[in-house]
Simulated scan of single mutants.
Amino acid sequence: MQISAIRDALADAARDVVLPAGLRALTCTGYVPDAITEPHFFVADYEQTFDRAMRRALDELEFTTRVLVGRQDDRASQQLLDSMLSGSGPASLKAAIEAARGAPGEYALGGLAHDLHVMRVQGYRWYEHQGTEYVGAELIIKVIGEG
């Protein structure tokens, strides 16, 4: 699997969320950005497990992604974050990213991987990024594909 291409494809999939009217569109990057244009989703860290099947047939990547929201209004910011962390709905990152799995029998992320799964949310808290504080959380995404 080509890790940089998968990072970019995850960001592309996340762009499909639909935020409430009057809010900026979600900015998404496949890498940790120097500066945040909030709300912002990005792929941060990853872990790679090689050889989940014999002869390099399958590798497993576990991506830690992060979504950050501005703090103009603490309650409204957390409500927006909650909608993006929901398991379903137009603003759901899980729904948007898992839509990139493709139809049954198709490869995920436009052919870059066998499959993917948004596994969990963690780290719901305040984050500092380049000296500015945001409310945010991490989503853990498992991607499997050829080694």
Rank of each mutant, 00 (worst) to 15 (best):
S4Q: 09
A5P: 01
I6W: 05
A14V: 06
R15A: 04
R15V: 08
R15H: 12
D16C: 01
V18D: 13
A21W: 03
L26P: 08
L26R: 04
L26E: 08
T27H: 13
T27K: 10
T29F: 15
V32P: 08
I36F: 11
T37G: 04
P39M: 03
A44K: 02
Q48I: 12
T49W: 01
D51V: 01
R52T: 09
A53N: 10
R55C: 05
L58E: 02
D59K: 00
L61S: 03
T64M: 04
V67M: 06
V69Q: 07
V69S: 03
D74E: 13
A76D: 09
S77Q: 10
L81W: 05
S83M: 14
L85F: 11
S86T: 14
G89P: 12
G89H: 14
G89L: 14
A91Y: 10
A95R: 03
A95M: 10
I97R: 01
E98S: 03
A99G: 09
A100N: 10
R101G: 12
R101C: 12
G102Q: 10
G111M: 07
G111I: 10
G111R: 00
H114K: 01
H114V: 07
D115T: 06
L116I: 04
V118I: 11
V118K: 00
V121I: 15
Y124N: 11
W126R: 05
E128P: 02
E128Y: 04
Q130P: 00
Y134L: 08
E138C: 13
V143S: 06
G145Y: 09
